[in-house]
């Protein structure tokens, strides 16, 4: 009886500890490895399907924002990346999933920063949920099977003069050279995507 009581007590302690920890980790995120096709409209009302870009050598999906200072620190670099890779069969799609940023806001922001890549409005953050994207800017590079080849940051500094690791650039170069991406997952602090 005494042994059973001790075992029961130990079981309780383990249960209590697990409950406290996992309860707090309920919202942690895991990386997705593949996404399904989706259709979203850009700020001009034109529909874009992911399958429209399946013949590209790589599809760069960029979760971005109009009001996030971290995302905005990369406006010029995003446009430069588009310019560098547009003729190398790399497609670029911006996605805005923030509930408080309207189609009109996105259109004005794109115009202000002379973005030439499409920016799609993800109403009700459905696509952000499918990617499990949580931050802006957050980049996913897909192959023609919509498998994630690279996920993470554009580079390692908001201040362009301090960049020492051009992570997205490196990943795209490796993909275009038929190599496996060396650094497939990177991270940086950013703004939380504001969900409904």
């Amino acid at each position: 009886m005494k042994k059973k009581t001790i075992l029961g007590f130990l079981f309780f302690i383990i249960l209590f500890t697990s409950f406290t920890y996992f309860n707090s980790l309920g919202s942690s995120l895991k990386d997705v490895t593949k996404v399904e096709n989706f259709i979203l409209k850009d700020y001009n009302g034109k529909s874009h399907s992911l399958s429209d870009y399946e013949k590209s050598k790589a599809i760069v999906i960029m979760f971005i924002a109009t009001e996030c200072p971290v995302s905005n620190a990369y406006n010029t670099r995003m446009e430069k990346l588009y310019e560098t890779y547009k003729d190398k069969e790399v497609a670029f799609l911006g996605i805005n999933s923030n509930k408080q940023e309207s189609v009109e806001d996105i259109k004005n922001h794109a115009k202000e920063h002379s973005f030439r890549f499409p920016i799609l409005k993800d109403k009700n953050n459905i696509i952000a949920d499918k990617f499990e994207a949580s931050v802006t800017p957050e980049i996913y590079v897909l192959n023609s099977n919509f498998e994630v080849m690279y996920h993470g940051r554009i580079d390692n500094s908001r201040n362009e003069s301090e960049v020492s690791s051009k992570d997205l650039d490196n990943a795209l170069n490796e993909i275009l050279n038929g190599k496996k991406v060396t650094n497939q997952r990177t991270k940086a602090f950013g703004c939380t995507i504001k969900r409904v």
Partner: peptide, 10 residues
Amino acid sequence: LNKDWSGAIP
């Protein structure tokens, strides 16, 4: 701080 965390704050 957490291997499953993307870096979104707070």
